[in-house]
Amino acid sequence: MASRAEAAGAAYPNKVRSHSIGERLVQGGLRIPLVLWAIAVLFPILWTILAGFKSNGDIYADPWGLPTTWNIQNFADAWTTGSIGHAFVNSAIVTVLGTLLTLLLAIPTSYALERVPFRGNRVLYNIYLAAMMIPQALGWIPLFMLLNTLHLLDSIWGLLLVYTATQIPFSIFILTGFMGTIPRELEEAAAVDGLSPLRTLWQVIAPLAMSGIITVAIMDAINYWNEYFMALIFLQSPEHYTLGVGINYLAETAQYTNAWGTLFAGLTIAIVPVIVLYAIFQRRITEGLTEGAVKG
């Protein structure tokens, strides 16, 4: 992006130079909102992490200052007595398996909808599309009864199936967009080489749609890791809690016990792994999302 502006500048050096002082002022002025927003984003997150190390006394005496002593006990308390440890493992299971299942179901369907003409193709695509607009809350009451009937209530496996079903329309929407850009000649060549449609899908199409698949995987995973409300309704016993519900439980407990340090330690446990993963994969995520926005 900088290179584009520089290229334009190099082509018309006089024009740019004559504006340079004014431009520099404008640039400086436009930086202010960026810096302010960066602070607005970072400060509460850093504060949460710091508060996780604080004793209750510290939190009340100087809520927004640095901890006087670095208290690691909060994290141990959140992990064990607050059941955040259990919740962390449950959330990890639901997130990883849920994302895999979503991809396993959405990739073949997207391919069929995008590339295989059959009767009802457009109708089915539009049904999935329309489902993105349905208020999920309307389905929660019957879902509760359904899960109860299937003996999947209060179980992370039931939750995983429900999550997958709710993310399928979005995943199909993004994946069909990406698959639409793959040249048809490649499939024709694969067919000529005698590859079955299934092998064409996994060996030719899937690798080419990889940036779309990664985008969908990340968006789904973020959703599953962070989902709270369905988990709250469908999970009842603390050993089945996922992170969202576990943290809500910590927050409710803190209302009575004033264990704020433990609560913030719990919040830190929920936030930090995702931010670390994002920092590692951010280039791919940004590329996928910006590309996806154009294609989708």
Binding site: A38, N226, Y278, T286
Partner: peptide, 13 residues
């Protein structure tokens, strides 16, 4: 990178 951080956080958090 920074501005995307809140999108990674759960609504409950």
């Amino acid at each position: 990178i920074l501005f995307f951080f809140p999108n990674l956080m759960a609504v409950v958090v």
